[in-house]
Every structure is written in C-alpha cells, then in structure tokens.
Amino acid sequence: MSDQHILSVDHLTMRFGGVVAVNDLSFTAERRKITALIGPNGAGKTTVFNCITGFYKPTSGSMRLTHDDGRNIQLERLNDFRISKLAKVARTFQNIRLFPGMTALENLMVAQHNALMRASGLTFLGLIGAPSWRAAEKDAIAQATQWLDRIGLLARADDAAGNLPYGDQRRLEIARAMCTEPALLCLDEPAAGLNARESAALSELLLSIRAEQGTSILLIEHDMSVVMEISDHIVVMDYGVKIAEGAPKDISDDPRVIAAYLGADEDEAIAVMESGT
C-alpha cells in the first residue's frame, strides 16, 4: 500500500513564533502522478514546500519519501542540500531563482554538480584532464542539450539566463531541476506570469516529464486551467489546514473549496454554485 506513495506527509506542523503556518497537515503523493497543492494566498502551501525541500525544519510531524527500490527516507531528518542530493527531491521557486549571469547551458551543468564532482574525482582527475572526466563532461553536456531541446531553448543555449524572456526562464528552471534527476519534482507556481499559450506548453512539458522520466510531481499552482488539466490528485489548503482532497472533478465541485476561494460562507458558496451552473 505504502509502496505506491512516493511521499507521505504525516501531521506536519510548522509554527513561526505565534503564527501557525501549517497545522497538522497530512497528505500523500502517489508515484508517477501529479499531485497539486492549491489554496488561497497565505494558506501555507509554500511553507509545506519549504519543509519538504529542507529549507525549514518542521515544528512537528514527519515526511517520508519512498524510492522505487523501497528505500524510505525521513525528510525532516535531512537538511538543505542533502534533500536534493540524497533524497532526490528537486524544486523550483515562486520567484525564479536561476543563475542570471551564467548561460542557460551552464545553469543545467551546475545542476549536475554532484554527479560531475564524482566523475572529476573531486576535482583532482579533472585538473589533470583524465579521459574518464572528459567523457563524463561530454555526457553532461549532452544531457543538458537534450533538456534544452525539450524546452525549446536549444537556440539560446549560450545566452545568459538573465537575458531570457520570463516564460523561458520558468521552463529553464524546471529543466534545471530535472537535471538533478529527481524522484520527486516540487514546482512552486510554475505557471505564474505565463500567458495562455505558455501555460499550455507548460502542461504539456509536465505531462511529458511524468510519462517519459516517470518523475512524480508535486505542484503549487493558482492557474486552475493548468491544475485541472494535468493533476491526478488535488489537496486543498486554507489557513494551514487541509480542507479537501480528491480528484480534480470532485474538488471543483466541493463547496468548501469554493468557499475558501471566494472567502464566503459554505451556504453562500452552495448558493453561488447552484445559481452559476
């Protein structure tokens, strides 16, 4: 049973002084599925992300990651870079965090740091230009090139990341996260600021990542067209607690979710819904 879940979050609580950002949250994300985490602004979604990716230490609760080989990793016991390195959890950021002064290709090379460090014999083999290192570097460039091709940025590989248009930067950040070869990809509002066509392209990219790489995806998103189109499972949060969970169709009909989004009472929401549809 637990094998089909890549991530299970259990009674996660995160307090900042007197503010409870996340309160006793439990949910699971299935393997090779896209799980969306939605909710109004300030619901605590990004805090959950920061706990999963090790940027915050949760006040209490546990987060278990189960790899394909059945290996279990308690994420709350690892800190910052080890989550990406050992647990194979990659993330993107709400406000894009590329390396603006490095080229698109270099950004994807930095993402393969740990594999390349091993190949370069902790720098020493690389310093003398050992053939094994040269081969590894070639492979890394090929891998990066392949991702650039997939996100349609091959022609701009040698341009500084900071010079790329906004939508391209979003996709480059996803490609960079994928270059760490993650088991779980956490995307924080990947469609924010994209137009309708770019959003559609993003949906396609995420679906292809799930299909081809078999990567499980956890997604925070406000753009409901994207969420409803690609999610297999949706978790809705408000004020730090989970208020609903289920398939996209069930969620879109749930009066509690509509109430949370409209900021209205449940009864009113039901009235709105009935009059609307």
Partner: peptide
C-alpha cells in the same frame, strides 16, 4: 553559482 544565488545552489544539492 554560489556567487549568483546561494539558495538555488542548495536546492540543487550543492
């Protein structure tokens, strides 16, 4: 990369 963005580096497992 560290000079450019330290947080992003940590997210990439560096």
């Amino acid at each position: 990369a560290l000079r450019e963005d330290e947080v992003a580096c940590r997210a990439l497992g560096i």
